[in-house]
C-alpha cells in the first residue's frame, strides 16, 4: 500500500451516529484517517457523507459516539478544529456583489488574521488558484469552476492541516473536474490531509489513496481501490483486446493461461483474467493470424466494485432467506 501517509491519525471517529427522527443518517461509524492521505468518502446521495462531515466540524451534533480531529473534540472544541481544518461545502456560495478579494478578506478576518498577514496570504492563495487577474471582479460574474477554485483559495488562507471537500466536482464539466482534482492532488504534496466526499465514484477514484464506501449511513467497504478490487471482484484483471481477423479469435484467447472468460463483441474482446495477461494475449492473437489493433488493461472501477458488492449481498440475502424458509422477516442492509 503506497499512500505516502504518515503515521499520525488526524481524524478518528468511534461509533459516530446521527439520527434525524427515524432516519439514521450515519450509523456507528469508525473512521481512521492518517496524516497526508487523500481519503474518499464515497457513496450514493443520501448515504450520510455530508452528515459525517458536518459532525467532524462540529456543525451538527452527533446523536452518539465521538470524533477527534487533530486531537480535538469537534463538539467541545469546534473553534480549534475549525481553525486548522478547511471546509468546502457542496455547492459553495459567495457574496456575489463583493469581489473575490473582499470575500476572502472577510474570511481572513473571521479567522482573526492580522491585516498584513491576511493580505499576504490572500495574494498568495489567489495567485495559486489562478484567480489573481480576476480578484477584483464581483464573484457574481464567476463561472462555477472559478467559484470552486475560489473556495479552495479560501481554504488555503488558514494554512490548514486538513481540508474537507464535500462533492468537490459537482456541477463541473469533466475537464474542469479533472483539473480541480489535480489541484487537490497538489495539496497532498504539501502534507495536507484531504477528506473528500463524492457520489461520482469513477471520477474521484484516481486521486484517492483510500476510500470508504457508504451505503445508507454505514461504511460497507474500505481500503485502497486495488485492494477492494481484489476483495470484491476476486482479483480479476480486465483486458480489452481490439483485433482484426478472418476467424473468431475467441478459442485462441481462451487458450491463454490465466484467462477465465472472454466476451466478444464486434472485434473487441473483453477478457477476465487472474493476472496481467497482455504479453501472452498479444502473442496469441498474432499466432492465430489476427492483427492486433489495441490492447489495454482496464482499471478496476469503483462503480463496478460497489455494484458487484451489492449484487453479492443480494444473492447471499436471497440464499439466506431460502434457507430460513418462510415466515422470517427479511433482514436488510449489509453485514
Amino acid at each position: 500500500m503506497t499512500t505516502g501517509a504518515g503515521e499520525e491519525v488526524v481524524i478518528e471517529t468511534e461509533g459516530l451516529t446521527k439520527r434525524y427522527g427515524d432516519v439514521t443518517a450515519v450509523d456507528d461509524l469508525r473512521l481512521r484517517i492518517q496524516e497526508g492521505e487523500i481519503y474518499g468518502l464515497l457513496g450514493p446521495n443520501g448515504s450520510g457523507k455530508t452528515t459525517t462531515i458536518l459532525m467532524l466540524l462540529g456543525l451538527t451534533e452527533p446523536t452518539a459516539g465521538s470524533a477527534r480531529v487533530l486531537g480535538f473534540d469537534p463538539v467541545r472544541e469546534p473553534l480549534k478544529v475549525k481553525a486548522k481544518v478547511g471546509y468546502l461545502p457542496d455547492q459553495v456560495g459567495f457574496y456575489d456583489e463583493l469581489t473575490a478579494r473582499e470575500n476572502l478578506a472577510y474570511i481572513a478576518k473571521l479567522n482573526g488574521l492580522p491585516r498584513p498577514e491576511a493580505e499576504r496570504r490572500l495574494d498568495e492563495a489567489l495567485e495559486r488558484m489562478g484567480l489573481a487577474d480576476v480578484a477584483d471582479r464581483p464573484v457574481g460574474t464567476y463561472s462555477r469552476g472559478m467559484k470552486q477554485r475560489l473556495g479552495l483559495a479560501e481554504l488555503l488562507l488558514k494554512r490548514p492541516r486538513v481540508i474537507i471537500l464535500d462533492e468537490p466536482t459537482l456541477g463541473l464539466d469533466p475537464e474542469a473536474a479533472r483539473e480541480f482534482l489535480q489541484t487537490i492532488r497538489g495539496l497532498k504534496a504539501e502534507g495536507i490531509t484531504v477528506l473528500l466526499s463524492s457520489h461520482l465514484l469513477h471520477q474521484v477514484q484516481q486521486i484517492c489513496d483510500r476510500v470508504g464506501l457508504f451505503h445508507k449511513g454505514r461504511k460497507v467497504l474500505e481500503g485502497t481501490v486495488p485492494e477492494l478490487a481484489r476483495r470484491v471482484l476476486g482479483g480479476a484483471y480486465r483486458v480489452r483486446v481490439h483485433a482484426q481477423s478472418e476467424r473468431d479469435l475467441r478459442p485462441a484467447l481462451e487458450g491463454v493461461a490465466g484467462v477465465r472468460a472472454v466476451i466478444a463483441q464486434d472485434g473487441v474482446y473483453e477478457l477476465e483474467a487472474e493476472r496481467d495477461v497482455r504479453p501472452d494475449v498479444a502473442e496469441a492473437v498474432v499466432r492465430a493470424g489476427g492483427k492486433l489493433l489495441g490492447l489495454e488493461l482496464e482499471e478496476p472501477s469503483l462503480d463496478d466494485i460497489y455494484a458487484r458488492y451489492f449484487e453479492r449481498l443480494e444473492h447471499q440475502h436471497q440464499d439466506e432467506q431460502a434457507q430460513e424458509g418462510e415466515g422470517v422477516t427479511a433482514r436488510g442492509g449489509a453485514r
Binding site: 466540524l57 456543525l59 469546534p78 473553534l79 480549534k80 475549525k82 481553525a83 478547511g86 471546509y87 468546502l88 461545502p89 455547492q91 459553495v92 456560495g93 459567495f94 457574496y95 456575489d96 474570511i107 473571521l110 479567522n111 482573526g112 473556495g151 479560501e154
Partner: peptide, 14 residues
Amino acid sequence: NRRTLSRVLAQPIY
C-alpha cells in the same frame, strides 16, 4: 440561499 452560511460557520467562530 446564497449558500454562504456553512462556509462562514466553518470558520473558527460560533
